[in-house]
Design a protein around this nucleic acid. Structure first.
Length: 275
DNA sequence: CTGGGGACGGGGCCC
DNA sequence: AGGGCCCCGTCCCCA
């Protein structure tokens, strides 16, 4: 999907110079939430569906629909938001999505950072806690009670001293808080489409979804006139123009444009019949 | 059944 | 450190 909606030269490994585009969409996104109440809809004015000159990305109308979480955001039932509504944790750049409802854990209370599960002593950091815990049994593997404010996850420190972050809502575990926070968004779904109410974990997922409403297709196939809203879909489409597809059956050497097709081919025993 | 498009999710990397 | 974006992948549906 449009995990990306920026102009990019195909066939290059280098990332595009986003800064060049920033003047077009960055700032707009940054102010969207305040400028555009969630109720507003962009696209129905038709003005959005643009003519797409090649891959030119027209973000023109997106901000309108790119609203922050609505009050009915599913994050509420998950009980993740409230503790994080403090503005402290929201370096969250544009606030284009979270608006205080972010799932991101807030900065813990400095006076009650990491608590020892054994004696309740509060430490200022996982490292300090680990050190402290050594005083109990010489090991630091004990569970670290995450800061009270962090209700979304529990942190544990492995015997090796590396912290791991557990999602409160599922068994997933991450080695960095950032990864966990990212994951938690898939539970809180802070990005809500103002058109249909569908919620997404990340802003760009929402942007891509919005294209399904606007009909915008910024990604054009250089070989035919087809255009796509999703770069991944264009990529898959490009495979159809290729003589030799990306995915090859190990048995019959037949190639497929998609992994799923290869999989289906394999499962169905298609390679047997083609041999 | 196969091929292809639409929509979306998540990890990793870069800034 | 956190956010934004890319890549890879999956699932569903339709012709």
């Amino acid at each position: 999907m449009p995990r990306s909606f920026l102009v990019k030269k195909y066939f290059t490994n280098k990332k595009p110079n986003y800064s060049e585009l920033e003047g077009q969409h960055g700032p707009r996104f940054a102010v969207v939430p305040e400028r555009f109440p969630p109720a507003e809809l962009p696209t129905e004015h038709g003005s959005v569906v643009p003519s797409f000159p090649g891959l030119v990305w027209d973000m023109g109308a997106l901000p309108l629909s790119f609203a922050p979480v609505s009050p009915t955001t599913p994050s509420a039932p998950l009980d993740l938001s409230s503790p994080f509504s403090s503005s402290s944790g929201s370096s969250s750049s544009s606030g284009d999505e979270d608006e205080g409802r972010t799932s991101d854990p807030p900065s813990p209370d400095p006076t009650e950072r990491f608590q020892c599960a054994h004696c309740g002593k509060s430490c200022s950091s996982p490292t300090a806690l680990s050190r402290h815990q050594l005083s109990h049994c010489g090991r630091a593997e004990t569970s670290v009670i995450a800061p009270a404010a962090i209700t979304t996850a529990a942190t544990t420190v492995s015997p090796s001293g590396r912290s791991s972050f557990h999602c409160k809502h599922c068994p997933k575990e991450y080695t960095s808080l950032g990864a966990l926070k990212m994951h938690i968004r898939s539970h809180t779904l802070p990005c809500v489409c103002t058109t249909c109410g569908k919620a997404f974990s990340r802003p760009w997922l929402l942007r891509g979804h919005i294209r399904t409403h606007t009909g915008e297709r910024p990604f054009s196939c250089p070989h035919c006139n087809r255009a796509f809203a999703d770069r991944s879909n264009l990529r898959a489409h490009l495979q159809t123009h290729s003589e030799v597809k990306k995915y090859q059956c190990g048995t019959c050497s037949r190639t497929f444009s998609r992994m799923s097709l290869l999989h289906k081919h394999t499962v169905s025993g298609g390679c047997l019949s083609t041999q």
